[in-house]
Each structure stands twice: as C-alpha cells, then as structure tokens.
Design a binder for these strands. Structure first.
Lengths: 198, 198
DNA sequence: GTCTATACACCGATAGAC
DNA sequence: GTCTATCGGTGTATAGAC
C-alpha cells in the first residue's frame, strides 16, 4: 500500500465508517469492519485515530453537518408560505426515502452521543446547527412569500426540526408514505400559523 | 438461591434489563450486567432465555406496551378540543421530563429492532399499538369537546405519534423545556385543524 | 435447578518485522 | 509508515459439580 497523508486516511476511514454504520448500525461498526470497508489494514486505523471513540466523535461532528442543504426548498416566487414550507418538508421526505439508512445512521449517532455526558454537547451542537439552518430557510421562505414570522424564527425552526425528526422516526418504522405526507402537511399548517401571511 | 419458576425469573430479568438499558444504554446491557442487576448468576440467564436476543425481543414486545396510559389527558367537560389535545401532549411531556432515561431506552429499543429484518415487525407492531391508543384518546377527546374529526382518526393519531416522537428526540438533545412546550402547542394547533370544532 | 468454572469468538489496541 | 501477528479483555454461551 502506498503512503497516504494522515488527513486523507482519516477522511477515508470516516467515509467508510459512515457506510458501515448506515448498512449495519453503529454496534456493528467495529474497527475491523471499518478498515475492511476502507480497504486498509487494522493497524492503519490506530495510525490515523487514537481510538475508536475518537473516530466516532469525528463522525458525529463532521458528517452530520454535510448534506444539510438537502432540506432547502425551491423558492419559487408567487408561492404561498404554506406551499413553500410544505414543499421543503416534502423535499426532505424524498431525501429520507432515497437514503433511509443514512438518516437511521444519523439517529443512531445522536442517540449514542446522548449516552455519555462528555459527548452530549456534540449532539446538542449538531441540533443547534440544524435549527440555525432551518431558521435561515424559514426567513428566506417568508421573504419570498411576503410574510413575516410572528414568533422568533429560531423558535419556529426548533418546532420544524422536531416535526422533521418525528416524521423520520415514524416513517422508518412503518414506511407509510401517505401518513408521512400527512405529517408534512400538518406540520406546514402548524408552522404557517406562526406567521402573518399577509 | 431458592427455586424460582421460570416465568417469574424471565420477568425479573426483563425488569432488570429495562433498568440497565435505561441507565446505561442497550449496548451496555450485557448478559452479565443484566444478571448482576437482577441479583442472579450468569448461568440462570440462559436457563430462562435461550439467548440475549430472545430477551431483547421480549423486552421490546412487553415493556413498550406497559405504561401507554400515561398520555391520556384529563378529560374535563367544557374544555375545547384544542385544550384537551394540548393538555394531553403536555402530560406526556411531563412524563418524559420525569423519566427521560426510560423514553431514551424506548427509542434505542425501537432503533435496534429496525436494524434487522426479522425484528422490524416488532417495532411496527408497537407503533401500531401506539397509534391505536392515540386514536382512542383522540376520539374520546372529540366526544367530550363536542367536535368531530374530519380526517380518519387513525390518520390524526399517526400524526400525533410523529409529533410526540419529534418532541421527545429534540428535548432529549437540548433539554429546552420552553421549546418543547412550543412544539406541543404547535402540534395541538395542527391536530385540531383536522377536526370540525363546532 | 442452581451454581462455579470455563470454552470460544471477537473486540480494541499494540509490538515488532520490514 | 505499513504491514502481520498477537495481547489482554470482555462478550455470549455452556459444561459439569452439587
């Protein structure tokens, strides 16, 4: 095997780890399974990371922050705020349907972080980012629709994130597409009522 | 140790397992940890259960179905449907606040079940029970308030369960009580709009 | 039936040859 | 730096004494 910079090796292992977690769950993401997925030897793992925990921590902080833009709706002028919000939720749902294992992996990583006091802040920081991104999208949506939020937008965003999590978890369990779309519609209703839609 | 019927021993191990999962997570709920919690020897475990998986399966099917009544609101005549629904959600939230580890354990068990095809139906069956219970509560609430659901009540219940899950997960992460209550209020809004409130 | 002692697999992590 | 080989520890499960 040729020589590979440490940073690159770390990135490759992170990618491999995410694939393993998505496919088989965090419990099955052993160092051996991860290096096999990455096509490396076992010893290279501890050359790049001090421990498995170090990799999992980095997995939580880096990977969760990647494809956040998937939730951004198409912002088409002329749409009502309700239409914009619902379209954003449905776009997220299509993302979930296209790669359910990935969202399941995210949930597992979050729950893992919640289990140890020193890792809990990692999960909290990620959710803070989610809320921030959601808030920006909601602001943009209101601007396009000519509406304005009557509740602090961060609070609206927090509700949106909660609704999204609930949609995800229940759909992962029952795979009921129609029910999930009903959740999206109800959520759009609730959120739009937090705005003055002019 | 005195002789104990197998059924009783199974029940004691199930209880002990739930306590261990709540305190330390499913990954830490090893056979050794469970029998230590139950005050038994390691061999008694495999006298009562063929395998650890068998215990976890029973944990999912039995324990999840126990305290479902916690969500039932006080049904006070004279309240509006919105008040009844929101009170039910807030009652659930107080239950969550009083024993967050238990709800976290439930989430972990659900996610574990989702990871293997043969266990997925266990999670689906539990959620079906949740939805059924929620539907009955919603019917009762509408009756008391003199309202009627304009959407099939099972569909309303499915949305309620999704909102509850989202409230749970986000609160477990950020422990923001006010934000959780805002989610409950928004959810009550969305649900009430699925009814003709007279 | 219930225990202690143990088998066996697999885990994270490291030693040491190259 | 990168590998193979291995260590120490812990997991599930079982054998065998009582």
């Amino acid at each position: 095997m040729t020589r590979i910079p440490a940073a690159e090796r770390r990135a490759a292992l992170i990618d491999a780890a995410l694939r393993v977690v998505s496919r088989h769950g965090l419990a099955q993401a052993t160092t051996r399974a991860i290096v096999a997925e990455a096509g490396m030897s076992l010893a290279s793992f501890h050359y790049a990371f001090a421990s498995r925990d170090e990799l999992v921590d980095e997995l939580i902080t880096t990977v969760v922050g990647r494809e956040q833009q998937a939730v951004l709706p198409d912002l088409i002028p002329g749409q009502t705020l309700h239409e914009i919000v619902e379209a954003g939720l449905l776009r997220y749902f299509e993302h979930l349907r296209s790669d359910p294992e990935h969202e399941q992996a995210m949930l597992e990583l979050t729950q893992y972080a919640l289990r140890s006091p020193e890792r809990h802040p990692l999960a909290a920081a990620q959710y803070a980012k989610y809320i921030e991104l959601a808030a920006r999208s909601l602001e943009l949506g209101a601007e396009i629709a000519g509406a304005s939020w009557t509740v602090p937008v961060e609070r609206v965003a927090r509700v949106l994130v909660a609704f999204t999590d609930g949609l995800t978890l229940t759909w992962l369990v029952d795979r009921d597409d129609d029910a999930a779309r009903a959740v999206a519609a109800a959520a759009a209703d609730a959120l739009t009522r937090m705005a003055d839609t002019r």
